[in-house]
Write a protein that binds this DNA or RNA. Structure first.
Length: 104
DNA sequence: TAGATGACTCACA
DNA sequence: ATGTGAGCCATCT
């Protein structure tokens, strides 16, 4: 669960898709490390290299309060990927790499 | 080294 | 539905 691992994971995210903190954490091996993932992204300033904007919370919203460039920039970036953004939120059911469908 | 904080998430009232 | 409490991990002081 290194910062690098998370960054690498971000790069592995397919274009036009988004992932949640918990999902990233789980894929990395620590499903409870959602918080750590967020922290790592926060520390990461290579947003241009690592699409942290593709990472959203369990609700499908991005951390607009602390985002790299604000909800506007994030929204534009997501839209550039072909992701439909609703009020700073995305439809995990459509763009979520896996969303919470696993819960079903 | 130990303590505190945070881009999170879940459960309960 | 909203608000509060607890748990986890990495970084910072």
């Amino acid at each position: 669960m290194d910062k690098k691992s998370v960054l690498e994971y971000l790069r592995s995210i397919p274009c036009g898709k988004v992932v949640t903190y918990s999902q990233v954490a789980e894929d990395l091996g620590n499903k409870n490390a959602a918080r750590a993932v967020g922290n790592i992204l926060h520390t990461n300033k290579d947003a241009v290299k690592y699409p942290c904007y593709r990472v959203v919370n369990a609700k499908g919203e991005l951390a607009k309060n602390y985002a790299f460039g604000g909800a506007e920039g994030q929204k534009k970036l997501l839209e550039s990927e072909g992701i439909e953004v609703k009020n700073g939120k995305v439809d995990l059911s459509k763009y979520g790499l896996r969303a919470k469908e696993k819960r079903v």
